[in-house]
């Protein structure tokens, strides 16, 4: 394996180039100089911090610290998914975090233990990037699923109430909307499988190639990752919808209009 390493002077040079978008924004009055600047600084700080954390963890080689890191990532993912919701719904955070953990967990165990057969299983070089990818997709899926279910419920409130009024259970009455939400939340990941490699090369694959990995080898990695991402999204969507829909109903099996 061979790759070209970067030092801080290289980073500094790239930083100079950021002056171009700032200059353009100023010149044609886009008014987003401040955002570009903040983004530039945040990129630097956030990635530097995560770089050092990763370095620290890679050196640790104790399984519980590495697992703790994955747990923290899951909780942050759960928090991020909930943060997007305008309404505060009690218990939503744990529902989302559990679902994200379930979806990404199953995909991760399959990948690490059954496909890659990493030894030892907690080897951070594999576990951390893989869990990052799986958690992010599970997080997006869960957030999208909840968004969509809330929106559909608002729009199709009468269908739900009509079913309830005929004596249907809450689950039965909201079932078509749950399916709709699951489909909508899974679609981006499925579409990604459709176009992968045609429009763009996935980041992980590009990274491996730059790192000196032979293209066919890195493609195999990417294929496996894509399948696991789809699994992760599907499980977390279904789980979050199944746990969440109850929150839209009162204990008397009424649609809770205050939650919407």
């Amino acid at each position: 394996m061979e790759f070209i390493s970067l030092d801080y002077y290289d980073v500094l040079f790239a930083l100079f180039l950021i002056l171009i978008p700032i200059g353009i924004s100023f010149k044609v009055r886009l008014g987003i100089e401040k955002e570009i600047l903040i983004g530039t600084v945040r990129t630097f700080i956030q990635l530097m911090i995560i770089g050092y954390i990763l370095k620290y963890i890679f050196d640790l080689k104790t399984w519980y610290f590495i697992l703790l890191m994955v747990l923290i990532m899951a909780v942050v993912a759960g928090y991020n998914a909930v943060k997007r919701q305008k309404r505060k719904i009690p218990g939503l955070f744990s529902i989302v975090t559990i679902s994200i953990f379930l979806g990404s967990g199953i995909a991760m165990i399959t990948l690490i233990a059954l496909i890659l057969k990493v030894e030892p299983w907690y080897k951070p070089q594999y576990l951390i990037p893989v869990s990052g990818m799986m958690l992010a997709s599970a997080m997006n899926g869960a957030a999208l699923a909840i968004d969509r279910l809330m929106g559909e419920t608002k729009n199709r409130r009468w269908e739900i109430e009509a079913a309830l009024a005929l004596g249907a259970s809450p689950f039965k009455s909201i079932n078509p909307l749950l399916r709709e939400a699951a489909r909508a939340a899974m679609m981006p990941t499925i579409n990604a499988m459709m176009i992968v490699g045609i429009v763009q090369l996935p980041g992980m694959m590009s990274g491996q190639i730059i790192g000196g990995v032979e293209p066919v080898q890195s493609v195999r990695y990417q294929i496996v990752i894509m399948y696991m991402l789809t699994t992760s999204v599907t499980i977390s969507c279904i789980s979050v919808l199944f746990l969440f829909y109850r929150k839209l109903f009162t204990k008397d099996e009424q649609l809770d209009l205050d939650v919407l």
């Binding site: 309830l164 009024a165 099996e253």
Partner: peptide, 13 residues
């Protein structure tokens, strides 16, 4: 139970 009630008492919106 709500479902029993709603089976007996139908509603047209």
């Amino acid at each position: 139970p709500p479902r029993q009630l709603r089976k007996d008492i139908g509603m047209v919106f």
